[in-house]
């Protein structure tokens, strides 16, 4: 079976700082895969490597079978990307943003309206409003609509729920679950432990290294919360590092 996302020993350095250190994992087709880790763990760097915005220093990865360095043009056609920062045109209206991103991929809003309908219908009443004037939750729904409008095979969502209220966050995860029926593979990152349970599988990432990959249930130590487990894993990792030194 071919994995839509296959990562093999990806390493990325910014000068002396190693942002990603030999990261390897695979994500299956249609899977909702969560990348859980604190700020500065290397989540955004991994997203930028997989969306071909940066080149790795070591290792390789493929997205839908395409190499992230050599086949970057093909990858840019088939992925949807929602960066951590709200990155739509604030001076354009909701509708204009959506139209623009549809046209960017050579399509129209109508072509894939069925895909975004459950999400977009919630902000449609405000379609003439400028994107900059939307609330946090609405901005995020618009950004997701724009990332989906060309029916991508793989969706990359970098901390989509950061800075969004609890109700909107919960709604957002419902929407992601709803995308499963379309066979879209989703890689999503979050710093919130409570959201991990909404993913099918999660990877715990800290300091550029993957600590553990499993289903949210199996990854958690019996009788402990995911958070405690994560902290225990980080401490173990640090102890290992100390011995090496």
């Amino acid at each position: 079976m071919q994995y839509p996302i296959k990562i093999d020993g990806l390493t990325k350095r910014y000068g002396a700082l190693t942002a990603l250190d030999g990261v390897s994992f695979e994500v299956g087709k249609g899977e909702l895969f969560g990348l859980i880790g604190p700020d500065g763990a290397g989540k955004t760097t991994l997203f930028r490597l997989l969306t071909t915005l940066m080149k790795p220093d070591e290792g390789s990865a493929t997205v839908d079978g395409f190499d992230i360095v050599n086949d970057y043009k093909e990858i840019r056609n088939i992925v949807g990307y929602m960066p951590g920062r709200f990155s739509l045109y604030q001076d354009l209206s909701v509708e204009e943003n959506l139209e623009f991103f549809a046209s960017l991929f050579g399509g129209t809003v109508k072509d894939n309206y069925d895909l975004i309908e459950p999400i977009y219908s919630q902000i449609e009443p405000f379609k003439t409003r400028r994107a900059g004037k939307l609330s946090g939750g609405m901005k995020q729904k618009l950004a997701l609509s724009c990332a989906l409008i060309h029916r991508p095979k793989v969706l990359f969502l970098d901390e989509p729920t950061t800075g969004v209220d609890a109700v909107s966050r919960s709604e957002f995860w419902d929407m992601l679950a709803g995308l499963k029926q379309y066979g879209i593979t989703i890689l999503v990152s979050t710093p919130y432990m409570d959201e991990a349970g909404r993913c099918e599988r999660i990877a715990l990432i800290n300091d550029g290294k993957i600590l553990k990959i499993d289903t949210p249930g199996a990854i958690t130590d019996p009788g402990m919360t995911l958070e405690d487990t994560f902290i225990r894993l980080i401490q173990e990792e640090n102890a290992k590092d100390d011995i090496c030194k």
């Binding site: 840019r76 929602m82 709200f86 960017l104 991929f105 050579g106 990332a147």
Partner: peptide
């Protein structure tokens, strides 16, 4: 600066 370039680049543009 606004970060829109990041989204723009991850497209066939």
């Amino acid at each position: 600066e606004l970060g829109t370039m990041e989204v723009l680049l991850v497209s066939p543009v």
